[in-house]
């Protein structure tokens, strides 16, 4: 697992049933592109988050494939329907095999 990888998400605490809400996510990650060289002139190997998904109560909201041109600390903003109360699951997949998840509950009413 890469060091200091920390996911953060912004999700409203509640919504009305059927409402469309905006979600924001950030994960601290260097997104090493595989194109930079170190001081010795050697290529620093690629190490990025290569996939990000958001699901709500088991149903998919968005599924993103990332390439090295995504900036350090990948940021996504998107919208989700909220058909009922439940839980968002956010998942980031690292080149090194690590998987980072974050969950956020939302109430309806």
């Amino acid at each position: 697992m890469a060091d200091n990888v920390k996911p953060r998400v912004k999700v409203p605490k509640s919504a009305s049933a059927g409402e469309v809400i905006t979600l924001k996510t950030l994960i601290s990650h260097t997104m090493e592109s595989g194109q930079r060289k170190n001081k010795a002139g050697e290529i620093i190997p690629r190490s990025i988050i290569n996939r990000f998904t958001c699901d709500f109560n088991g149903q998919n909201v968005i599924d993103v494939t990332l390439e090295p041109a995504i900036s350090t600390n990948p940021y996504f903003e998107f919208q989700s329907q909220v058909p009922e109360a439940g839980e968002f699951t956010f998942t980031w997949y690292d080149d090194d095999g690590s998987v980072y998840t974050e969950t956020k509950a939302i109430s309806v009413g």
Binding site: T65, E67, F78, S80
Partner: peptide, 12 residues
């Protein structure tokens, strides 16, 4: 290449 967004059934 930058990224590909795939929208699921719950995309708002």
């Amino acid at each position: 290449d930058v990224c590909t967004f795939n929208f699921g059934p719950l995309a708002g």
